[in-house]
Design a binder for these strands. Structure first.
Lengths: 250, 250
DNA sequence: CGGGTGTTTGAATAATGTCAAACCGAGTGG
DNA sequence: CCACTCGGTTTGACATTATTCAAACACCCG
């Protein structure tokens, strides 16, 4: 599937970085501190959809701040199946893991064209040393990743296929519809294929197709061509076993 | 199931804390810095097997350093099934989540009698402020949790029941058999019931029972009464799709 | 001896996967 | 403008995996 081409977002400098407050740079004050990251960062980079930021098992020399586009973290099991671990949206800090310089324990695939800001891995500990507030921020971000992984685990481990799919789509929906956007849309772009959904939920693409059809026919949601339209928020939240939902009808 | 009673491990002071280097206190130097935590901590506590440190949805006023015993993190889905998210061993730092003071997004159940060192939640940000190295440590710990959750997700999402069970037991096995122990045991205590295994893997207890029987009859492992005996490390690692295995035969 | 918790067993059933073919729409090259 | 290919989706028949239900069992503990 191909997504509508958009120009990649690349800030000219850290000062006007659109995701500065979302990522690891947040605690750095706007003046001289920001210059430090500006010098620390290797540069920006654009990748086409389908490319990998890094692959599982690979030694990756960089971290990435996701400026624009969607990324999926994944692992490949020995039997050839792929598990998608998380979907990353702009603002994510990608690639941190406990043993900084070892082989990556997962891969990062670009679902759309993607632009990233690149940090050198090797020097990161020194940056942390100089600005330990970044460490605190990193702890916060990592705990978010953990919570998110926990939610996914419960989804995959406890719920039947229909609920899993509804839950995943709803949770992506609320992540996109952040408070920022004054006018909530109940029709959002989600650049996934049914296979992505299947790989994230431990299902097969054909079964996902069948369930999506049911959801469509029951007037709950329409997911087609990378667009998700929520038809019946309450009904969905119900079968999805979903708590935090604040959808505006329409 | 009841486990053999052991006296709870409680250090008399932070100076001789057995898990100081595993948990969040690691970066604090042994002298005056350690006195700070000593004063910061609320005290120690012992809980009986079956108790909860905190429950999902509850507002928890504390963090815990797990001194002794096993803890399971879990979520309950609306259909009544329980998902075990992680098994915690002594040295774990329990209860950190992004929104420090909100309701806990998961629960923590004591699988055995447990002893913990208690931190007040409210004041933690100040501790971080004064000793930002703790934040860096926390980031490290949290990224471990994330990686672990990712592994579990792949296990539950990609592998058939037999491989899931073998994988879980092997991974617990290597966590217990840390390099510390000079003499590796291929017969270790794992205080879980089959229902725990089922809840961790998205299976039912009766199916787990059946698969364990198969594994037993194929001379791969014996899991009984909270003891795991590895009979055929290589064979197991093979069906478990397991990488990092360094088992001493026996 | 009796009760509780955990385990085992078997049979019937439901959920999900597999395989194979057809379909659909977008992009490409003639 | 057509035919072709390609990735993604849909469909149906069928196989398999895992769940459910129910009963019996085993064991520890009081």
């Amino acid at each position: 599937m191909t997504w509508p081409k958009k120009l990649p977002v690349i800030p000219t400098s850290c000062g006007n970085c659109p995701i500065r407050l979302s990522t690891v740079c947040r605690p750095l004050a706007a003046g001289s501190q920001l210059d430090v990251v500006q010098k620390f960062k290797t540069g920006d980079r654009v990748l086409a959809a389908g490319m990998d930021l890094f692959r599982p098992g690979e030694e990756c020399k960089e971290f990435y701040n996701l400026l624009d586009g969607w990324v999926a973290l994944y692992q490949i099991s020995h039997n050839g199946r792929r598990q998608i671990l998380d979907f990353l949206l702009p603002g994510a800090f990608v690639g941190y893991q406990p043993e900084l310089l070892d082989a990556m324990s997962y891969g990062a695939a670009c679902l759309t064209d993607v632009s990233v800001c690149v940090f050198p891995r090797r020097d990161f500990p020194q940056l942390l040393e100089s600005y330990p507030a970044i460490g605190v921020r990193l702890a916060w971000l990592n705990s978010h990743s953990t919570i998110n992984a926990y939610e996914n685990l419960t989804n995959v481990g406890c719920r039947p296929a229909e609920a899993r799919i509804a839950h995943l789509l709803l949770s992506l929906y609320v992540r996109i519809n952040r408070p920022e956007q004054a006018a909530r849309q109940n029709d959002v772009e989600i650049p996934l294929t049914q296979s992505h959904i299947a790989d994230a939920l431990g299902l097969t693409n054909v079964y996902v197709s069948q369930i999506l059809k049911q959801l469509r026919e029951r007037n709950l949601l329409i997911f087609r061509n990378g667009r998700l339209k929520i038809l019946d928020p309450d009904g969905l939240a119900n079968i999805a076993d979903f708590d935090q939902l604040l959808v505006v009808g329409g």
